[in-house]
Structure formats: structure tokens, C-alpha cells
Design a protein around this nucleic acid. Structure first.
Length: 411
DNA sequence: TCTGGGGTCCTAGGACCC
DNA sequence: TCTGGGGTCCTAGGACCC
């Protein structure tokens, strides 16, 4: 990193749980769990009992019987997130949002205008607390890695600035789990090498590390342990895949049930693709058996697709194939689309009852709204399985009819 | 503690091309 | 009939993150 860079990492504390406490004052000061089967977020009051995501709610309640479990207002979370990101953008245009509740800010060179990084961080924390109502922690350092670790050390509701003159001393005393890229498996592998702190890690020669962890992981961790992190803060790319998945409780072996689940997921994914005006060439289906073993199948198509029917039609054979890996109930089904392309045209298949059961084709992309209206229209006419029936018709035909323009003209 | 839903990145092998 | 070295694309699995 160039000397003198000033990077902030901002991280909302227990985000979902904090929003719930904001929306319902009776939850404030209490242990709050957001989630259903598993804990998605736990308030700090709950964390004091050793609860953390993704622990099962039952297990969490056995540790803290008086914890309050709430389902969560997931649509609201995005709004709160956006308000916070807007505040960040007031400090610098160079904001890299890395998830719903975190971002990096590069404030290098804004000192004259806005004050020191510490003053900027303090102002962001104050504004988020006063204007949004949420606690947020801030880490300040010369690199993204150190800033991220610092915000972790600052939690909850604090701010930590890493002194540029003593970065290594500060970093090396910490446990390796603070590093991005070290999870349970890597932590165990490092433990076998006698490594428990970042300082320990820095003493291990790169070839030894690579032999144990693989080349890329080794180089990554080796660099970070030696405080080398040249990654710049960049405004976020559009994303590389869109997916949806659903856990099925006890699971099922029934193919019709699985097909229905897949259809629902395909519909969710296709709606999001259309909203972003994206389509993808690779469809990946993922399943899980009761023993948690996971299997995936993928296919890459010659052209990008974005419709429910196309995803369902493409994904069902993949699901069938993945199922052959083992016997027993499927406990999770997921589908995702990658190799995304920006679309100027949107595809659509709809069933009709005028003798010709289906028309399919493309529509000029500016009318994403129109497409959603068309699908809603089809649903209203044919019921919720309209798109499912369309896909059945499609699968019985060798090729997709290509005259949707007619449909657009019909309406 | 028996596990949600959204993602990213890496590895290894195979097919295929020149 | 047997065969190098380099590259790209694809697929399956796995680790990790929030």
C-alpha cells in the first residue's frame, strides 16, 4: 500500500438484531435472536451467553432461555443499510460495500476538507447513531486488512486506529482466526504447524505453508502476516452470480416435490435477474443429503437465459443427475446462475389458452416492468403454476419458439 | 452445536486447440 | 503410431465470508 493511505472499515454491530431493537424498543437491552431454525444474528446481550450465528435456535435457547426470538424484517434491513452507506458516501466517493453491513472507505487526501481519519470515523459513528439509530464500529489503518481487523477489535460500538509505527507488533499478537480466509479447517491445519498467532504464522516459510494449504491460500496468508496488502478500495462490481436455495427440513425423495421446490427457486432467481437486467449462461444446481454431503451439477449454455422456465427446464436434469449420487432424502435444493451478461433483451415464456399453448421470445430490455406485469397477468389467468406449465410445454419441444415480439404487440 | 441463505475464490482433472 | 508444451474452457468439490 502506498504510504499514507487512510482506509476506514465500517461495520454495523449485530446488524439484524440491532435493527430489531431499534424497531421494537421493548427489545432493547435484552438478548435478541433473529432467525427461525438457526440464529442469523444475535444481539450482544445474547452473545454474552456464548450464542453466535449460525447456531440452532434450540441450542441457543438452552443457553439463554429468556432470549427473545424474532423472525426478522429482511426488507427493512436493506433500507437501513442504504442509509448508512449514504452517510459513508458523504465522506468519500470511494466506498466499497462488501456486504449488507460493512464497507471500506478510502479517505486519503480528504484531510483538508473533512479532518483526520479519526475525526471522519467519529463523525460517521455519530451520524449513524443519531440519524439512523444503529451502533457501528470503525477500524482505521493504512491497509484494508488492518482496517478490517481493527474494526473487529473495536466491537461493539467502538473505534480503533492502528498506529502506523507499530503495525507489526499490533498484528502479530493476535490469533490467526482474525484473518480473512482462516476458518475452522485452515485453523486446524495451522495448529498442526504450531501456529496460533499471526506472529507465529509470519515465521513459517512460504513453501511449507503452500504444501499444507495450497498455493493461493498460502500466498494470501503469508502476505497478510507480513503486513503486505496492496489491495485498493474500489467501488463494487455488479456481482458474478445470482442464486437461491431452500432447506427442506426432514427432506424429501419425491421428484415432483423437488421439481416444485426448484421451480420456486428458479422463479426467485429469474425475478432478481430481470430486475438487474442480467442473464446468465451457466446454471448450477446444488443439493444436500441428510448427512450434509453436498453435490453440484452445472451446465453452460450457448446463450444466456433469465426466465423461470428456462432455469427450471435447464436445472431439473441437473437435479436428477445430482440425486443419483446417493440414496435418501434431499434436505436442501439450490440453483444459481453465473457467467452473467448484461441484457438489452429479456426473455419470456408464457402459456396461453388460445390453442397455441406457448409463445416465447424476447422483449426490449427497457421494459423490465412490462415483463413482470406479463408474468403476473399469466399467473392471474392460469394460477400460480403458470410458469411451471410453460416449462413442461417447453421441455416437450426441441426448441423454444422465438416469436415473443408478437406477444408484446398483442398487448 | 447438527447446521439458513446469500455469495466469492481456489483446486484439480478432463476436453480441446494449436 | 506416438507424442511436447502452452493455453482456454468446463465441471465438481470444498473452504470461507457475512
Amino acid at each position: 500500500m502506498m504510504a499514507g493511505a487512510h482506509i476506514l472499515h465500517v461495520d454495523l454491530d449485530a446488524f439484524y438484531a440491532s435493527v430489531e431493537q431499534l424497531l421494537d424498543p421493548s427489545l432493547r437491552g435484552k438478548p435478541v435472536l433473529v432467525g427461525g431454525g438457526v440464529v442469523l444474528a444475535a444481539s450482544y446481550e445474547a452473545r454474552a451467553y456464548g450464542i453466535s450465528a449460525p447456531m440452532g435456535v434450540k441450542a441457543a435457547l438452552s443457553r439463554c432461555p429468556h432470549a427473545v426470538v424474532v423472525e426478522g424484517h429482511f426488507h427493512r434491513y436493506l433500507d437501513f443499510s442504504q442509509e448508512v452507506m449514504d452517510i459513508c458516501h458523504d465522506a468519500t466517493p470511494l466506498v466499497e460495500q462488501i456486504s449488507v453491513d460493512e464497507a471500506f472507505l478510502d479517505v486519503t487526501g480528504t484531510e483538508h476538507l473533512l479532518g483526520s481519519p479519526r475525526q471522519i470515523g467519529a463523525r460517521i459513528r455519530r451520524r449513524v447513531r443519531d440519524e439512523v439509530g444503529l451502533p457501528i464500529s470503525v477500524g482505521i489503518a493504512r491497509t484494508k486488512f488492518l482496517a478490517k481487523v481493527a474494526s473487529g477489535q473495536a466491537k461493539p460500538d467502538g473505534m480503533v486506529e492502528v498506529d502506523p509505527d507499530s503495525e507489526l507488533q499490533w498484528l502479530h499478537r493476535l490469533g490467526v482466526r482474525v484473518m480473512w480466509g482462516v476458518g475452522p479447517v485452515t485453523e486446524r491445519a495451522l495448529d498442526d504447524l504450531g501456529v496460533s498467532t499471526v506472529g507465529d504464522l509470519a515465521t513459517i516459510p512460504l513453501p511449507v505453508l503452500a504444501g499444507r494449504l495450497g498455493r493461493a491460500t498460502a500466498m494470501h496468508l503469508h502476505s497478510l502476516a507480513h503486513n503486505r496488502d496492496p489491495r485498493p478500495v474500489v467501488s463494487r462490481s455488479p456481482g458474478e452470480s445470482v442464486g437461491a436455495q431452500s432447506a427442506l427440513g426432514m427432506g424429501t425423495t419425491d421428484r415432483a416435490d423437488l421439481s416444485t421446490v426448484l421451480l420456486g427457486l428458479a422463479d426467485r432467481v429469474s425475478r432478481r435477474l430481470r430486475k438487474k437486467q442480467l442473464a446468465g449462461r451457466t446454471i448450477t444446481v446444488r443439493i444436500r443429503f441428510a448427512d450434509m454431503s453436498a453435490h453440484t451439477r452445472a451446465i453452460t449454455l450457448p446463450t444466456a437465459v433469465a426466465t423461470t422456465a428456462a432455469l427450471h427446464h435447464g436445472g431439473l436434469p441437473l437435479l436428477d443427475d445430482a440425486r443419483s449420487e446417493a440414496a435418501g432424502p434431499i434436505t436442501l435444493v439450490g440453483i444459481s446462475v453465473s457467467k452473467l451478461e448484461r441484457r438489452t433483451e429479456l426473455q419470456l415464456e408464457l402459456p396461453f389458452d388460445d390453442g397455441d399453448p406457448i409463445r416465447a421470445g424476447s422483449l426490449r430490455g427497457a421494459s423490465a416492468l412490462l415483463v413482470d406485469e406479463q408474468i403476473d397477468l399469466a399467473r392471474a389467468r392460469f394460477g400460480s403454476d403458470a410458469v411451471g406449465r410453460a416449462s413442461v410445454v417447453l421441455s416437450s419441444r426441441p426448441s423454444v419458439p422465438n416469436s415473443f415480439r408478437e406477444l408484446a404487440e398483442h398487448d
